[in-house]
Design a protein around this nucleic acid. Structure first.
Lengths: 234, 234
DNA sequence: ATAGTATTTATCCAACGAGTTAATTGTTTT
DNA sequence: AAAACAATTAACTCGTTGGATAAATACTAT
């Protein structure tokens, strides 16, 4: 599939170019929003000419939509790699929270893009059949995990999986997405390592406590071991 | 203080003008972000001339900062009206969640402005001594409520008030701020009345269950009475 | 009235930014 | 090699937008 590169001034490689453009566009849209993004900057960053954007992707809005769809594709793909089926329910929930949290940390542009799209009232997303067809596997995963947890007696209550999914996303998303203003308000850097660790522990403790009814480990200040077993494992 | 209005083509009322400008600017910035906002639209909406913006407030950035500061002033002012001191702890927490939730619902521009400011990495907020001096009374309120709850035996664990504050804000903020994309993803309107009621019930149940350890009422689907006592009142 | 000040209106414009045109350069096919 | 095709570039168009200027208008103090 890939061509052997001879001595060519520019490889005949429209896909590579396209990808570099989309990558640059993702950064630009995440950093400045739709209106604030500059097509020239995207081109420059991609090492391309502005005309190439229009040649390879389309106009600014097409570009944005392509970026957005790519972002959803990426998270959905990673979500599918996480199988919680074989874990005992509390462990599964903890894993889920950790994954979500870490994904947000590793992909800050994703948070920014979602905010941008919501500022636009999901105008673009609504037109994307592609994204609409990409269902998150998490809702069903949660549904079965919760059911199993209730049956096993680990969980006391059967939470609605959609609500739980949104809540788990909320707890991490808000903290990270709004860390800039929150850090100013509270007068401390919420993005430094110990603060983030503390936050993760709190989220896990909060959700598991609600589900299991058993008081779990640290809800806030306590220092934690390396990979905190925030709930009684055995 | 207020002047009797004679037959005037335009009242000499700089404060009123300023307020109308700020009001219009709030809507505009909330709807379009900083880069997307149009000074001309703000002027038109305020029933003013563009020149007046610069005369009364300053340039676009000054205008934005004034709006942002106003938004924080407003929520802080309302927060102060909520006294939770005399309620028993679970009731206090429920009130807190309800207040936060309803404030977000009543002030959607506030959510948008926060997102916008975070997209800008709190660049403006950092320069605002005004906002930095406006501490939310909630952290201290929560601290005392939690302490009282632990002492009375209502709560099993002493949660860090900052974490709890952020979590309570998270659960509502994310849902409302991202309702547009979430509604598309889940294929249902999260902003219609029953969905919102369900969300509030879930949030209250989640947090109170974690705090009290007692399994509380509905975590999701159950229909609720008018002003749902999501936890055992007596 | 008169002078002075605060407020408002009517234009103006330089910069910028999205998108286009047309020419150029490289690669493949015949 | 030459025609056909694909990728890339530079230069330009043209509407928009933030911001500025100056002059007019309403009010206030004397």
């Amino acid at each position: 599939m890939a061509k052997a590169k001879r001595t060519l001034k520019w490889q005949r490689d429209p896909e590579g170019m396209r990808l570099r453009i989309l990558q640059a566009a993702k950064q630009e849209f995440a950093a400045h929003g739709i209106a604030g993004a500059r097509v020239d900057r995207i081109a420059a960053e991609a090492g391309a000419n502005k005309r190439m954007l229009y040649y390879h992707v389309g106009n600014k809005e097409d570009l944005y939509l392509a970026v957005l769809e790519g972002a959803y594709e990426k998270i959905r793909a990673e979500e599918r790699t996480l199988d919680l089926e074989h874990l005992d329910p509390p462990e599964a929930i903890e894993r889920l929270i950790e994954f979500t949290w870490n994904y947000f940390i590793r992909n800050p542009e994703f948070l920014a893009l979602l905010n941008t799209e919501n500022l636009a009232r999901a105008r673009h997303l609504k037109r994307s059949t592609k994204v609409k067809s990409m269902h998150s596997p998490f809702v069903e995963m949660i549904r079965t995990v919760v059911r199993r947890g209730v049956e096993s007696g680990d969980f006391r209550v059967a939470m609605d999986p959609v609500q739980l999914y949104i809540s788990i996303a909320s707890l991490g998303f808000f903290y990270l997405s709004n860390s800039a203003t929150l850090s100013v308000i509270f007068g401390r850097d919420l993005l430094k390592k110990p603060a983030k660790d503390e936050r993760l522990a709190h989220m896990v403790a909060l959700v598991l406590a609600a589900l299991t009814g058993k008081s779990t480990a640290s809800f806030g200040k306590a220092p934690k071991p390396l990979r905190s077993p925030a709930h009684p494992v055995a």
